[in-house]
Design a protein around this nucleic acid. Structure first.
Lengths: 302, 302
DNA sequence: TAAAAATACTCCATAGGTATTTTAT
DNA sequence: ATAAAATACCTATGGAGTATTTTTA
């Protein structure tokens, strides 16, 4: 039997966030004495000191730190409850929090958001960009509703909808011998210096896999933090790289760099949508998937 | 900003459990009108009908079904908050929910519980017995605090403490040629009919792996539902099986059956304790692990 | 003396109670 | 006739407010 109150947990979290009773109260739309009083009652109820009232600022005690994290979980679950209730009222309304990886988001979103907004006008989109590992954790713990990313085996515990296959192209300096070819094979990479992203990007792991298999060597000296940096490094002649198809659309004119397709079977990544198996808002997800598939087949199939 | 109340969620869950307003109210220690009223207010607040008031019974609407599950999550999180708070007050007090597999629990628990109760007198132990897959789900979703089971790769997302290695012994009918041997090797199993547990038991998968490698064949006709059934089947001469060490202690006198150790390296299972990486009650877990290791080394090392 | 949190108090919304009625078997 | 839920009405706890005091940089 739960004896705590959600409101009290909100107060506690707010104090943690603002480190200031007045501003925390403001954020909760209550007066400062109200918030102070409730926090004190909570401390009394738990028989634990949660806050260190300092001369000029508020600090959390170690116990407070621990309980704030627990409180956030509770509030998260409560918000999920309310979001589900809202979605039952109108299955296509409410908020949705979508996670994407950095090598996909900026190149994918421009192609899909307009159509999504039109088809789901009452849905508010919140977009998050992070690496696979963090996204999976956030999805699992309920901070995100769905992910859009290339599929890996470690994702099998989630429910998956395949969206599209994105080919990888070879990006070479314009004056590179391979730049003249209509198409290349992985074998052509043998001996090439391949530039890659820094650790944690799934594209890096994938590209390294292909390079290694083809006998190319990874450049050990430089690690790009984004695809755009990588593109710049290739354009200045430092080496070649594998570039996802969406990041090459309408970029064939770029000076200093060429994008050469691979002969079939071209290396590619299977982009899919992931959700928790018990996620309740399936109508929205179905719409999302259908819309994304349509948008992407219009762009990629030609 | 959460607007729902935990108490209301408890009422909803109680009605789901009891399918009866009066008994639900009783379970929540409130009067029936109070509970009825709060449920109605909740329905009004959400603008959703959650219950079908029937002639003789109460049913949940589809929306109600969905929201009950969400409500349980919220309450679970709230209880976790309170359990954490309590554990901060006295790190070695409170409730702990431990999951174990059926091929381990009944043979392990008698050896460990007395010592645990003495060392952690203020801790209330709740023990659950189920197969690995279900246990992992329950651990992940917070219904259990820790698991005790043989380690598998798919558990790497949890924090792990190795407890002990449990050897497997060959169980044969007393009149079987292998029963006379002081010790056996996996090669001795070649051609033997090996009896196994039904699907879902990790011991079954493990035993099958060893059999397969050794050229033994699994009996296709019978599948035991428990180790005790399996033991009985061996004793009646139907075949041999692999029996975990703890299930053979003080059983060498059993009639009709012999337990023969394997020569090193004997097949074994690495029994470990698993917890969520963010589980807060580490002091209890540390005590648990230390105590279990000590109890088990006293039993197994000789 | 200025800024922030705590204290003192007042108020009222509402969770909870009891008594009763309605409804369906 | 009986069992169960809904309705009516009352009570009191406690969440939230305003005004003020205390604290300390």
């Amino acid at each position: 039997m739960a004896t705590i109150k959600l409101r009290d947990l909100e107060y506690l979290v707010a104090v943690d966030q603002h480190k200031h009773f007045g501003r925390a109260a403001e954020a909760c739309f209550v007066s400062q004495p109200t918030l102070s009083g409730q926090i004190m009652k909570l401390e009394e109820q738990l028989q634990l000191q949660l806050l260190e009232r300092h001369k000029r600022s508020v600090m959390l005690t170690p116990a407070g730190e621990v309980l704030v994290r627990e409180a956030q979980r509770v509030l998260q679950a409560a918000e999920a409850f309310e979001a589900t209730a809202e979605s039952l009222l109108d299955p296509l309304a409410g908020d949705i929090h979508i996670g994407l990886i950095p090598t996909l988001a900026p190149y994918l979103l421009p192609h899909i958001m307009e159509s999504l907004r039109q088809e789901l006008p009452k849905l508010h989109f919140f977009l998050y960009e992070d690496r696979t590992k963090k996204l999976l954790r956030d999805l699992n713990e309920g901070r995100l509703d769905v992910l859009i990313l290339p599929y890996l085996d470690e994702m099998e515990s989630f429910e998956r909808y395949e969206l599209f296959a994105e080919k990888l192209l070879l990006a070479t300096p314009a004056d590179h011998p391979l730049a003249k070819k209509k198409s290349v094979t992985l074998q052509d990479l043998e001996g090439e210096r391949v530039l890659t992203l820094e650790d944690g990007h799934c594209l890096r792991d994938q590209a390294m896999g292909y390079c290694f298999a083809a006998g190319a060597r990874e450049d050990q000296q430089f690690r790009a933090t984004s695809l755009e940096t990588l593109r710049y490094m290739v354009a200045t002649g430092m080496g070649v790289t594998l570039m996802p198809q969406l990041a090459t659309l309408n970029r064939q004119g770029d000076k200093g760099i060429c994008y050469v397709p691979f002969k079939d079977p071209a290396p590619n990544r299977e982009v899919c949508l992931l959700m928790r198996p018990n996620y309740t808002r399936t109508p929205v997800v179905r719409k999302l998937v259908a819309n994304l598939r349509q948008s992407m087949s219009a762009i990629l199939d030609k």
